[in-house]
């Protein structure tokens, strides 16, 4: 295809990305580096701050009077967990009833994460439908591509929200520290650490939102997902998006050696992370009697 067509495809996917994903990398990095004016995020770094911030999780707008007293100053030079000092987490709790309420709080937080993930699946679905040719594929194949691709896409979308110390949640209004997530009871404490490890490495590639849009489309259009009925048209679509991505990276990152190859390599790592994630969710279903998995996530993870 002509270079002009490939550039038009890149622009189209970037516009769809901006339309369907509420928190871009540009916005997230501004928040994380403290360049977001006075709107520093609420920081959750222990059970007490989780309790205080719980009502705002998944709110698009935190009321300013509730929000301000708990935020880190943007003047500290960005959001990190380093300034917060030692984090006791739940380890300092000895009282049985306190432990019980901490357990319930962790479970409620996990359910909030599920709701946001389900909403994320909706966003990714809308983005997928905007990929030229996607909605003309066999409907069963559209379902298969989303079933197998959506968690990979959500993990990639998480990377810009993370730094080595924590992650933005709640549309960028809350920063949750990595240490706090590690202090949760098993297996909750095991869920995010692999994503942090992946994200810190992925972020060194320094993709911007327009690169991300193309990369997400490449992931969605994977012709090797199990059970696909008509692989050829999917591979053809992916081939075009791959050409567009390669050209985009050459133009956007002229000095980054082998960026295209490095990025494609990440797709292999992603598959392992998703496999491990699904195993943890299956483990949770066994160990947490009160846990109910969101029906949309159940659909996706069943027989994955």
């Amino acid at each position: 295809p002509e270079a002009a067509d490939l550039r038009a495809l890149a622009r189209h996917l970037y516009e769809a990305y901006l339309k369907y994903f509420p928190l871009t990398k540009a916005k997230a990095r501004a928040i994380l580096s403290g360049k977001n004016g006075d709107n520093a995020p609420f920081v959750i770094h222990d059970m007490k701050s989780l309790m205080e911030g719980e009502q705002f999780i998944n709110c698009r707008q935190i009321p300013i009077q509730e929000h301000q007293p708990q935020t880190l100053s943007a003047g500290l030079g960005g959001v990190t967990g380093v300034h917060l000092g030692p984090d006791c987490g739940i380890l300092g709790m000895t009282n049985i009833s306190e432990q019980g309420s901490a357990d319930a709080l962790e479970l409620r937080f996990f359910h909030s994460c599920q709701s946001r993930s389900a909403e994320g699946v909706r966003e990714v679905t809308e983005f997928a439908k905007s990929i030229p040719g996607f909605i003309n594929l066999d409907l069963n194949d559209q379902v298969t591509l989303l079933k197998y691709g959506v968690i990979e896409v959500l993990i990639i979308m998480m990377a810009p929200l993370m730094n080595k110390d924590g992650t933005l949640i709640s549309y960028g209004q809350i920063f949750m520290t990595r240490e706090f997530l590690k202090s949760l009871r098993k297996p909750f404490c095991q869920m995010m650490e692999p994503k942090f490890e992946f994200s810190v490495k992925f972020n060194t590639l320094e993709l911007d939102d327009s690169d991300m849009a193309l990369f997400l489309a490449v992931i969605i259009l994977s012709g090797d997902r199990p059970g696909l009925l008509n692989v050829k048209p999917i591979e053809q679509l992916q081939e075009t998006v791959l050409h567009s991505l390669e050209l985009q990276l050459k133009l956007n990152h002229p000095d980054s050696v082998q960026l295209f190859a490095k990025l494609l390599q990440k797709m292999t790592d992603l598959r392992q992370i998703v496999t491990d994630h699904v195993h943890l969710i299956q483990l949770l279903k066994k160990t947490e009697v009160d846990m109910c998995l969101h029906p949309l996530l159940q659909e996706i993870m069943k027989d994955l």
């Binding site: 069963n140 989303l146 659909e299």
Partner: peptide, 21 residues
């Protein structure tokens, strides 16, 4: 496959109307 993935299918089919998630 569509039968086993009703919500996903619904998300794919309904372009504008929000699905109750």
């Amino acid at each position: 496959l569509k039968e086993k993935h009703k919500i996903l299918h619904q998300l794919l089919q309904n372009s504008t109307s929000p699905v109750d998630l």
